[in-house]
């Protein structure tokens, strides 16, 4: 068996692959955050809680209505997205004229409330959610067993990220969105309903988080903490990629997933901190992030 850096090569390949899978979640969540920050200028601290809601809605659909994974993949983003629209209309829309800090505090508070409600109702141990039969099983890749479901997560996340990027960069709707980011009054003057567009963008960002939640449900246990454990890392990903940069969020998400995976091999104790160390270095060298515009 060949060794790389003192670690058997097959083990290293396996870890790169696993890093990529975790990176898929980082990418999907940071994409939603980047879209919301790009257009609304809101640092959405509730993103993790909404990701958790996505997983819980999937569980509820199965437990109460008997609707399985594929329905959840379709319905959960809609339901949680609609909840996001409600949040935007009721609370967030009142803060656009204020400093970033107010949006951050509000959404942080919302996250605590949402998590508290779910914790009270469902406890903290988590709820069982099984991998759909079509995607269960694993492939023997010689160097590791790759569960089919994990491969599905990476492919699905890549498609979702690519689709979002295409909508924003290549469609008319995307052009309106980007224009509104630059100069909202001017776009409004052309007859575009900017407030509605902003609301729907928030809903779409939230729906992406919920979609991530449904993807995560069969892998992690569905529990109220699942989002808060992830959200801080995802924020670091967004900062490293450059606030508001769509491509930056996606690439950094996958990249940092791999870096974290490598750390788990060489020095697992540091795997929770390595991303923040990178964040500090990036902020010192390029304050606008790797892909951000200064």
């Amino acid at each position: 068996m060949e060794d790389l850096f003192g670690i058997p090569a097959p083990l290293l390949f396996g870890q790169v692959l696993l890093g990529l899978i975790n990176g898929a979640f980082y990418a999907m969540l940071s994409l939603g955050l980047a879209v919301i920050f790009g257009l609304l200028n809101i640092v959405n601290m509730a993103h993790g809680a909404l990701f958790m809601m996505g997983a819980f809605v999937a569980w509820l659909l199965l437990d109460k209505l008997g609707l399985g994974y594929w329905w959840a993949l379709l319905l959960s983003p809609f339901i949680v997205g609609a909840f996001g629209v409600l949040l935007e209309k009721l609370f967030i829309s009142r803060l656009y004229k204020l400093d970033h800090l107010y949006g951050l505090l509000l959404t942080f508070g919302l996250a605590l409330v949402i998590e508290g409600v779910f914790r009270n109702e469902f406890g903290s141990s988590g709820l069982p959610y099984r991998i759909p039969p079509e995607l269960s099983g694993s492939w023997d890749l010689d160097f590791m067993f790759l569960p089919i479901y994990r491969a599905w997560v990476v492919i699905f996340a890549l498609v979702a990220c690519l689709a979002t990027w295409l909508v924003i960069e290549k469609t008319r709707l995307g052009a309106y969105l980007r224009a509104a980011t630059e100069n909202a009054p001017l776009v409004q003057a052309f007859g575009v309903n900017v407030p509605r567009m902003v609301t729907l963008t928030y809903g779409a960002g939230v729906a992406l988080a919920a979609l991530g939640g449904v993807l995560a449900a069969p892998i992690y246990s569905v529990n109220p903490q699942m989002g808060s454990n992830l959200i801080i890392v995802v924020f670091a990903v967004v900062v490293i990629g450059g606030m508001g940069s769509i491509l930056g969020a996606v690439l950094t998400g996958f990249g940092l997933g791999i870096v974290e995976g490598m750390t788990k091999v060489f020095y697992p104790e540091a795997s929770a901190t390595v991303i923040f160390v990178i964040m500090v270095i990036v902020l010192l060298a390029r304050p606008a992030g790797l892909f951000g515009r200064a």
């Binding site: 590791m144 892998i219 992690y220 699942m226 788990k264 697992p268 795997s271 929770a272």
Partner: peptide, 21 residues
Amino acid sequence: AARYPFPATTDFSAFLVQAQS
């Protein structure tokens, strides 16, 4: 043995694959 950071770890697959190998 693989020691993972508590309570910040959500995915254990990297450690499990090490255990497997």
